[in-house]
């Protein structure tokens, strides 16, 4: 990042001051703890994607979840490693549209198509494009809606990318802390359910009136 670029605005950060869901991990059952803490350890090795695909997928997924300009030292969620593991183990939902290949092949085909778009428009592979260029290429896919994109229905491609990327990101405890979600709740459960009721370990939103939609429509916050 050049020194002239201002630091990115991160309005999602710091809404639940001091809340870290991992502080509660001693209250989780051992099976759940094992599954969740594995995501905070070393990222699984890449087994499904080729190095070339990995580069495109990393840039794409980091853009989709706003991680591309994450300031260090905040560690990124290793989205592509988590997606790669699912595809390598065929941990998919099983179904596929009759006009789409199964998920693994669909990922390969669409990463390749995205790279082709980048070369055509910017004379550079997708991974090497600037952040703005990457964003405009991604936006172009979304904008095609139900129309065709490289022989596939763009809407289904968009759904494939966002489904996998969101599942990977919001499976991570750091994402839960960011949104104030309390994570696993067994065997303890909850004692204070209800509007505006908190458990002793939960933290109120510091900016409760920051409705993102309201802001976008220019309504006064």
């Amino acid at each position: 990042m050049s020194s002239a670029t201002p630091p990115p605005a991160r309005p999602w950060s710091g809404r639940f001051p001091g809340f870290d869901v991992l502080d509660q991990s001693s209250h989780w059952d051992p099976v759940t703890t094992g599954v969740v803490l594995a995501r905070t350890g070393m990222a699984p090795d890449i087994r499904f994607f080729t190095p070339h695909e990995q580069g495109i997928a990393t840039a794409l997924c980091d853009q989709l979840l706003g991680q591309h300009d994450e300031p260090t030292p905040v560690p990124k969620v290793p989205l592509v490693n988590l997606i790669d593991s699912r595809l390598a183990e065929q941990q998919t939902d099983g179904w596929h549209y009759d006009d789409m290949p199964a998920d693994g092949q669909a990922w390969r085909d669409t990463l390749s198509a995205l790279d082709a778009d980048a070369r055509q428009q910017f004379d550079s592979g997708f991974a090497a494009c600037s952040s703005q260029q990457q964003a405009s290429l991604i936006q172009a896919v979304q904008d095609r809606g139900t129309d065709d994109w490289h022989g596939l229905r763009a809407k289904r491609v968009w759904s494939l990318w966002t489904r996998y990327a969101c599942t990977a990101f919001y499976s991570h405890p750091s994402a839960w802390s960011e949104i104030g979600f309390s994570g696993p709740a067994y065997p303890r459960g909850y004692k204070n359910a209800g509007v505006d009721k908190l458990e002793p370990f939960e933290v109120h939103d510091a900016r409760p009136s920051e409705d993102p939609l309201r802001g976008r429509r220019g309504v006064q916050r």
């Binding site: 309005p11 979840l65 706003g66 966002t162 599942t167 919001y170 994402a175 949104i179 979600f181 993102p212």
Partner: peptide
């Protein structure tokens, strides 16, 4: 919906990138 399923709701509105993260941080509301 729990967070992953909720993210599907938010993504279905067309949000991605910084918009998605900001919108998701509003989950408890």
């Amino acid at each position: 919906p729990l967070p992953i399923t909720w993210a599907e709701h938010v993504a279905a509105q067309g949000h991605w990138g910084a918009d998605l993260r900001e919108y998701m941080s509003d989950y408890v509301h």
